[in-house]
Each structure stands twice: as structure tokens, then as C-alpha cells.
Amino acid sequence: MTTTTLATPTAGPGAPVGLPKTQSSALGHALADSRVLLGRNLKHLLRNPEQFFQAVSLPMILTLLFRYLLGGAFTGGGQAYIDYVLPGLMAISMGFNSTTTVVGVTNDMRSGLVERFRSMPATTPAVLIAHVSAAVLRNMLSLVVMIGVGLAVGFRPHAGVGGWLAAIGFLLLFNITLSWIAALLGVAATTVEGATGLSMILVFVPYLTSAMVPTSTMPAGLRAVVDNQPFTPLIDAVRKLLADAPLGNSVWVALLWWLGILAVTVPYTLRVFERRARKRR
């Protein structure tokens, strides 16, 4: 029969009455939630051999491949080829790494995990922030591996401290922006298979750049495309900064492109995320 209990309902079986909840501002909670979820993403990285392979072994293999297999045939416009190609390979590896983020985000959207977070007091977009932060860390790991292996096989940057800092700054801006784009693709994909397909954009676009050969060697039509897309000025800027070469305007072009893309992508991704998260799977 029905019994009316007006007593304040409290805890579950054996639960301490009135669990202490952390008091914090909305921003404080958002940061804390993102940190908790970043911990989850990092566990995924360590437990998933494919992810680890992609972040560590692939950059190593790419560096060695271009240094020894192709380095004899290609030239880098006066530079040693490894000096020319390494900044391009950095962009290419980060593109590869994005697949993990795209698929991971789609998975969370589809698996019901995001839906569960939405029913909780948690800050739901923290899922994205954690994925992006994990991607940024994964990419930094790849960069360290590439620079280490590169130095071992003849990469000889001439940059001073300022040049290095500027190059690292550019790589970080590119890294963060690319990771947000990956998150956007992950949010936009409706299936995990679709996510894999979409992530190929970030895998292949870095090849359509000055990454491997100077654009002056390309046919005019292709060159027009390659010169005027955001990846080329970014790669050129990093290459010139590391080589301590005259910078020209590539630095400013790169900065404008990537700051602009970042400024558009972050709010747009969050908006699409809110909309998609609401939709029933």
C-alpha cells in the first residue's frame, strides 16, 4: 500500500547521510570536471596500444623514413632535407593523432556517456575540454619524440632561444586549434565509422602543403591552392624560425589564420556539441 514519507530522503544503501559535496563556482567545477575527465583520457592513452603507437612510434618512424628512405632523393631548397622536412612532419603527425580525438569524441556522444553526464551536476562540455587537452598532450609527446629522433639523425636547427620559443608557440597554437577541429569533427559525426572517415581530412590535408617539398616545385594550379591554405604558412613559419632564416610574412599570415580558426572553432564546436548532446541517440 501507499505510504507517505515526508521525511527528507537521504542517502542510498549504507550511504553516509548527506555526502559532503565540493563547494565551488561554476568555473571551478568546470575546471575540476575537465581534470577528472582528462585523467580518464590519459588512462585510455596508456591502456590502448594503438593510441600509444600513433603518438610515439609513428612520429619516430616518419622521421626515420624521411631522413633515410626519401632524404637522398628529395631536396629542401638548399637546406639539409631533414631540416626542411621535420616541421612538415610535425604537422603531419599531429594530423594523424587527431583521429584518436575524432573517434573518441564520437564514441562518447554515441555510447550514452555524454547523456549520463547531462543528467548529472557535471559540466558536460568538460568532456570536450578533456579530449582536447589529452590531444594537446599527445601531440606534445609526438613533437618531443620527433625533435629527439631528429636531433639524433642530423636535424640541426640554428634558432636561438627566441626562435625556439616562437616556434614552440606556433606549434602549440596549431596543436590546440587542430585538436578543437578534431573535437568538432567528432561531435559532427553521427557514427563511429563516419568519424573515422571525417578524421581522414586532418590526416591528408597536411600533405597538401609545403611539408615535403617547396611549393616552387609544384605546378601553378596546385601551387595556388597549397600556398593559400593555412597549413603552409604555419609549416613555413616554424621551419624558418627553427632555421633562423629570414621570416618574410609567413609568421603573420600563419598567426592570423590559426588565431582566427581557433576563435571560430571553439565556440562553434561548443554550440554544435550542445545541440548534438541533446539529440536522442
Binding site: P20, S24, H29, F117, P121
Partner: peptide, 23 residues
């Protein structure tokens, strides 16, 4: 079910507990 396949049972609970803002 909405749980993380790559974590252990305990890790899932602790993670979700923290997202409920338990210390």
C-alpha cells in the same frame, strides 16, 4: 549502460563520483 569500457569498475565509480562533485 553508460560506463567507460576501458576503465575498471572502481575507476568508473570514482570518476563519476567526482563528477557528482564529491571530494
Amino acid at each position: 549502460a553508460a560506463i567507460d569500457e576501458m576503465l575498471t569498475g572502481r575507476e568508473n565509480l570514482v570518476m563519476m563520483g567526482r563528477l557528482f562533485h564529491l571530494p
